[in-house]
Structures are given as C-alpha cells and as structure tokens.
C-alpha cells in the first residue's frame, strides 16, 4: 500500500511541477480521443437515427452488427487497422501507421458503434405515439427529426461520454497502431503500460490517477450540462 501513497505523491508532483513530458502526454490523449469522439458523433448520430427511424431490408442485421460493435475488442481493432495501414497493406502508401492519425482512426472504429448504438436506443426510447402525434400536428420530416433529437439529447450526451470514456481508457489499439512513440504517439494509457513494464510503479500510478481525473472532469462537465438543462 506504500506504493499507492508514493504514487499519489508522485502524481501530485508531476502535476504541480508541470512536468513537460506528462503534460504533453495528457494533451495528446485529449486531442486524439477528443478527435475520435467528435468524428464518432458525426458518424454515429446520423447512423443511429437512421437505424431507429428507418425501415429497410437488413435493418435487423445492421442493428445486431452495431450492438456487437459496441463491445468491439480494442486489440482486434488495433490488429486490423495495423494490417490495413502497414506499408505492406492496402493503405500503406498513406504512411499513417505509428502516427496520431492511425490512433484517431482506430479509436473512431471503437467509439462509432457505441455512439450509434446509444443514439439508436435514445431515439427508440421516445414512445411511438409521440411521433404519431407530431405527424398529426403537421410536423415536417425535418421538424420531427429536430424534436426527436431534442427529446433524446440527454441519453445522447451519455453516448458521447461513453464513446470518450471508451477510447481514452483504451490501450490495446493505441499501442498497436500508434507504437507508443515518445513525444509522438505516447498517450496516458500506453505510457502507464510502459511505466509499469519499466518497474516504475509510482509513475504508473501517477499516470492512472491523471487518467481517472480527466475522465471524472469530462464526465462531470457533461453531467453538469445534462442536469442543468434537465427539466
């Protein structure tokens, strides 16, 4: 247990001292996972709405695929993104492997099904009668969509949180496609793995505490927005 105490003390000094390495790693984590979450919202919300409201052949299969994707193992994503991006792979010419771009891509693949699935659930929660009533009152398709999205905004905020929480805490894919290169693709989770494998357990604890603090702050901010707007 002394290890945990040392780790917390170390975490405090790393933060208080403004350690450039740790600061860079933290910033990079936020940038990469933030970008991946943002893109997954752009992709996942329209997809989730389409699956919730649309009626087309293969819809059941598509929903099953999305639900499976919500639990996609990051290492599997990492492996396939690596195979695609390695120089021997079909997209090797882009030279994206072991760059932050590759990490955003992998995290997008992880987060998009989560956002899609939760958006789908959020829209489906709204009773069918509400939609019928809106139609009956003469709402256009666009107006209906807008109202539904407004109604579903709180669960969809949860979708954003879940997506972000999923990718910033993910290590398998980031390690495989990013390479954990210092100053380039090293993020909080991969840095924690490295610190632990070096035997620097105090630094590993410090980085874990930082990661937890970030997740708490982001979730607290979003929850605050959610609760403030709640009726």
């Amino acid at each position: 247990m002394a290890l945990v105490g040392d780790g917390l003390r170390q975490a405090f000094w790393l933060l208080a001292g403004g350690d450039a390495d740790v600061f860079g790693i933290t910033l990079r984590s936020l940038e990469i996972s933030g970008a991946a979450t943002g893109l997954s919202l752009l992709l996942g919300i329209p997809l989730g709405v389409a699956l919730a409201l649309g009626r087309f052949p293969g819809r059941g299969l598509a929903i099953s695929l999305v639900n499976t994707g919500m639990g996609l193992p990051p290492v599997v994503v990492g492996l396939f993104v690596s195979i695609l991006l390695w120089r021997s792979g079909p997209f090797g010419f882009l030279e994206w492997i072991y760059t932050p771009i590759a990490m955003v891509l992998a995290q997008l693949v992880i987060a998009a099904p989560i956002v899609t699935g939760l958006t789908l659930a959020a829209i489906q929660q709204i009773p069918d009668r509400f939609r019928l009533q809106m139609r009956g009152l003469g709402a256009s398709r666009g107006q209906l969509l807008w109202v539904l999205l407004r109604e579903a905004r709180l669960p969809m905020l949860a979708a954003a949180m879940a997506g972000f929480g999923g990718v910033i805490s993910e290590v398998g894919a980031s390690l495989m496609v990013g390479g954990n290169i210092r100053g380039q693709t090293r993020v909080l989770t991969t840095a924690t793995v490295l610190a632990a494998s070096k035997g620097n357990f105090d630094v590993a604890i410090a980085l874990s505490v930082l990661l937890l603090a970030i997740m708490f702050l982001v979730n607290a901010a979003l929850t605050w927005i959610q609760q403030r707007r709640a009726p």
């Binding site: 939760l118 659930a121 959020a122 929660q125 949180m161 879940a162």
Partner: peptide
Amino acid sequence: MGQPRLADRGQAGGR
C-alpha cells in the same frame, strides 16, 4: 460511467 449503463438499461427495458 454510470450514464451509459443507465441508457443501456433503458434500451433493454423498452424492448
């Protein structure tokens, strides 16, 4: 991370 689980439960309940 409590929120998404709540939403999950909502989905299951709805079904």
